[in-house]
Simulated scan of single mutants.
Amino acid sequence: MASLPTSLDHCVIHVSDWERARKFYVDVIGCEAISRQGGYMFRLGDRQLNCHGKGVTAEPVARLPVQPGNSDLCFRWDGPIVGAVAHLKEQSVHIELGPVRRFGAQGDGTSVYFRDPDGSLMEFISYHG
C-alpha cells in the first residue's frame, strides 16, 4: 500500500472549566495555551488539541460535541517512565494504572494512565528502556 501525504494535525477534547484545563494541559502535559473564542486550544509541538466547551461552537461540522470524559489521548514521554511518574506525583495527579507495558506508535513501550480534569483518559508512554 502506498503512503499517503497525511499526518495527525489535531484532535478535540472537552473542557468544562477553561482555567482548570489551562493549568492541567500546561503544567501536566506541557502544552502551550493559545486563547481562542473565550477559551483555549493547546499546542504540543506541531500538534494541537482543539476544545469543545462553554463558548465554543462545534457546529456545523461536529454532529455531536466531544463530551466530558469522552477522550482517550496518549502523549510520548521522552525519557524513562520513572520521570513521568515523578512528574505526575509532583503535580498531584493520581495514576490510575502503571507503569505497564504497552504497544504504541513506535513499538513496545511503558505507560502510565491518569485523567484530565474532565475525566478523559490520558497516557504517557515511554520508549526508553
Results as ranks from 00 to 15, higher is better:
56 V>L: 08
98 G>N: 09
32 E>P: 02
90 E>Y: 02
26 V>W: 00
18 W>P: 04
32 E>G: 06
25 Y>A: 02
126 S>N: 08
96 E>G: 09
123 E>C: 05
2 A>H: 10
128 H>L: 09
31 C>P: 00
16 S>W: 06
72 D>N: 15
126 S>F: 05
114 F>H: 06
96 E>H: 13
33 A>S: 13
74 C>W: 03
95 I>K: 04
2 A>K: 13
76 R>H: 11
56 V>T: 04
66 V>M: 06
120 S>W: 11
78 D>W: 13
110 T>K: 00
28 V>N: 05
109 G>Q: 06
127 Y>I: 10
129 G>I: 07
93 V>K: 00
38 G>H: 01
47 R>I: 11
79 G>H: 04
60 P>K: 12
92 S>Y: 08
101 R>N: 10
5 P>Q: 10
36 R>C: 10
84 A>L: 06
87 H>E: 09
72 D>E: 12
45 G>N: 07
105 A>F: 11
106 Q>S: 15
127 Y>L: 11
21 A>I: 00
54 K>D: 02
122 M>H: 03
13 I>D: 01
56 V>N: 01
119 G>V: 05
17 D>T: 07
24 F>E: 05
93 V>S: 03
17 D>F: 01
103 F>S: 11
37 Q>R: 10
122 M>E: 00
79 G>I: 02
109 G>D: 01
85 V>H: 05
65 P>D: 09
111 S>L: 07
104 G>I: 01
59 E>A: 15
47 R>W: 09
43 R>L: 03
100 V>Y: 11
100 V>H: 11
92 S>Q: 15
13 I>T: 07
68 P>F: 02
79 G>R: 00
87 H>F: 08
85 V>R: 07
126 S>R: 01
109 G>N: 05
125 I>A: 03
51 C>V: 03
110 T>W: 02
62 A>H: 15
30 G>H: 12
54 K>N: 06
34 I>V: 15
116 D>R: 04
30 G>I: 12
